[in-house]
């Protein structure tokens, strides 16, 4: 069969590749709130006055930034579940939390992305001059309001380049989930190439789609950065 039929023919693999691309996007998008949100929480905890808490958060970041993403995903994917089951056994509780592959993948990616993004958040938290919080406090705002109304709105602009970076890493990192079970873009290409023994064709197709994603992300990122920086230059 020619390459055109393999891709677009009646038994062509394009639908599976597109479905896979959708899964890839879904994995990345669903990771964002937990990964970036978790990173912000970590960054705040790292600034807390509680020393053991600070050390624990630093250890978390060091660990997940220091080991291969593939290994981190394995540890979370299998370890988290076994640990939950083991805890259930030890405490004699009759509950069992079941994670499907997609959710487990999102959690695993979030754990890694939280570690990466916490550094970005930390840097941007430190970029807000302490005088502002002090001024807000002296106006009678409580700690929650100081954070939500004064500090948080300023974080986005500073954090944007760093978070954008992590987003592009995240999109590529989703491909690691393909080695577990999830039928993402890369896995779809693998299935197609093993069924047809035409790996060059299908991995190139997958690479082209990833490339499209990263070019689109790059464009969106510079647009957002331009907008966020209006009035700052």
């Amino acid at each position: 069969m020619g390459w055109f039929d393999l891709l677009f023919g009646p038994d062509g693999w394009t639908p599976l590749l597109l479905k896979g691309a959708l899964i890839t996007v879904a994995l990345a998008v669903n990771t964002v709130p937990f990964g970036f949100g978790g990173g912000l929480v970590l960054a705040l905890l790292k600034l807390s006055r509680n020393r053991p808490l600070r050390i624990a958060c630093d250890a978390y970041t060091t660990f997940f930034r220091g080991i291969p993403d593939l290994l981190a995903l394995f540890i979370v994917y299998f370890g988290l579940q076994s640990l939950l089951n083991k805890l259930g056994q030890i405490t004699g509780e009759a509950w069992r939390i079941e994670l499907n592959a997609f959710v487990a993948g999102v959690i695993a990616l979030s754990v890694v992305v939280a570690a990466y993004s916490s550094e970005v958040w930390l840097a941007s938290l430190k970029s807000v001059p302490p005088g502002q919080s002090e001024a807000a406090k002296s106006l009678g705002l409580d700690a929650r309001r100081v954070f939500l109304l004064v500090v948080l709105p300023q974080l986005g602009r500073v954090a944007l380049p760093g978070l954008g970076n992590i987003w592009t890493i995240l999109v590529k990192d989703t491909s690691l989930i393909s080695t577990l079970a999830v039928m993402d873009l890369l896995r779809a290409a693998s299935e197609a190439s093993r069924a047809t023994t035409r790996p060059l064709l299908f991995y190139s197709a997958a690479a082209a789609i990833y490339l499209l994603f990263s070019i689109l992300s790059g464009g969106a990122q510079s647009y957002l950065e331009r907008r966020a920086n209006q009035g700052y230059a």
Partner: peptide, 24 residues
């Protein structure tokens, strides 16, 4: 307040998982 936030985060994550009883 920070720990409340953290709990909320964990709770959110747990919502994604479906808890089921073991005997069924």
């Amino acid at each position: 307040m920070k720990s409340a936030k953290f709990l909320a985060f964990v709770g959110l994550a747990a919502c994604l998982a479906s808890a089921t009883a073991s005997a069924k």
